[in-house]
Amino acid sequence: MPLGTLDGAPPPFFRQGPSALSKLTFFSALALFLMVADTRLQIAQPLRVAVATVLYPVQWTVMQPVIWAQTGGQYFESLKLAQANEETAQRQLTLQSQRANQAEQLALENARLRQLLGLRDRLTTPAQTAQVLYDAADPYSHKVIVDRGSVDGTLPGSPVLDEHGILGQVTRVYPMISEVTLIIDRDQAIPVLNTRTGARGLVFGDPSARANSLELRFMAASADVQEGDQLTTSGVDGVYPAGLPVARVEKVERRADTAFARITCAPLALVTGVRHVMILTPVGTQIAPRPQSPAAGPTSLRGLRS
């Protein structure tokens, strides 16, 4: 049979119900009606609630991976932010700690400088302030280096003191710096006066194993020396002005096998950790030279008489 003679319409037993256009028109009109009725009368609200209730477990199950992903991202972001805040807080705490330490150190230095300036006001000897740069590299001596030298007028033998008392003596002078030997050095000796009894003595640096101590030597075993006595400079050596604090008696040992007492003293100055000091001019340089009597006077008189 030729193809052109075939009918393209479906067989009669496949034709059921209205046509597709009729269904489209009907359902469109029904949808419009339901929308208008739901807007006006809320007739679909119970159905909507029932459908939402039935579909909620499915929605919750489907949304959990998304929620977990968002929560995980927020957790890592918050963790990173917390770590950054902790680092910032740690840096700020470190800076504040450094500033607090610097403030305490500055307050201590200011207090020491006030005491040093107050001591300078009570002195009549010319003086200049100096700063300790570092300790000398000699392990067998007690010396420090200060930032004053010959260009500043520093003289060898100049007494050095801090706000508490005698610290040492200038032993070497360079153009820009000077070497100060502390009173606890075994080669140092200072004439002192016991402020309680008025007895004079001589304090030496203690060469024994006891660190930062002095020894009052050549005091008779029967001498009136007690623990706690204050020792000041006597001024008889022409180097140290009289009345400057030197040491405090800590221990007195009187033994029968020797005629002298062993007296251990503690220096009043900060022999370790001092930063600001005062350099005095030696007392001997301030004394005017003794005037010499003119030798030609009597001869000229005899010449006139003749």
Rank of each mutant, 00 (worst) to 15 (best):
M1F: 12
M1I: 12
T5I: 05
D7Q: 15
G8D: 15
P10T: 10
P11S: 11
P12G: 13
F14H: 03
G17C: 04
S19E: 11
L21K: 14
L21H: 12
S22T: 11
T25P: 02
A31P: 00
L34W: 08
D38T: 05
I43A: 09
A44Q: 09
Q45G: 13
V54D: 04
L55D: 03
Y56K: 10
P57N: 02
Q64S: 06
P65C: 04
G72K: 08
G72V: 08
G73V: 07
Y75P: 00
Y75Q: 13
F76K: 13
E77D: 15
S78I: 12
S78M: 11
K80M: 04
Q83T: 14
E86Y: 11
E86P: 03
E87K: 13
Q90P: 02
Q96Y: 01
L106Q: 08
L106N: 07
A107G: 15
E109H: 02
N110D: 13
A111M: 14
R112A: 06
R114Q: 08
R114K: 06
L116K: 01
D121N: 00
R122Q: 13
R122S: 10
L123D: 08
T124K: 07
T125E: 01
A127V: 05
T129V: 06
T129Q: 10
L133G: 02
S141V: 12
H142E: 04
R148K: 12
S150Y: 11
S150D: 10
G153S: 04
P159N: 11
L161S: 13
D162F: 09
I166Y: 03
G168L: 03
V170E: 13
R172Y: 06
P175Y: 11
E179V: 14
T181E: 06
L182D: 00
D185S: 05
V192I: 13
L193I: 11
L193H: 04
G198C: 12
A199T: 01
R200I: 11
G201N: 08
D206K: 00
D206Q: 01
P207V: 12
S208E: 08
A209P: 10
N212R: 15
L214A: 03
M219F: 09
S222H: 15
A223Q: 14
D224W: 10
D224T: 09
V225N: 11
Q226V: 05
L231M: 06
T233M: 12
D237G: 04
D237L: 05
G238N: 06
P241M: 08
G243M: 14
L244F: 00
A247E: 03
V249D: 09
E250D: 12
V252S: 15
V252W: 14
E253R: 07
A256W: 10
A256D: 11
D257L: 01
F260Y: 04
F260S: 01
F260H: 02
F260N: 05
A261H: 06
R262Q: 09
T264G: 07
T264H: 10
A266M: 03
A269E: 05
V277N: 08
V277T: 09
I279A: 12
I279N: 06
P282Y: 08
R290K: 09
P291E: 02
Q292A: 08
P294M: 04
P294S: 08
P294Y: 04
A296S: 14
T299W: 13
L301K: 10
R302E: 14
R305I: 05
R305E: 09
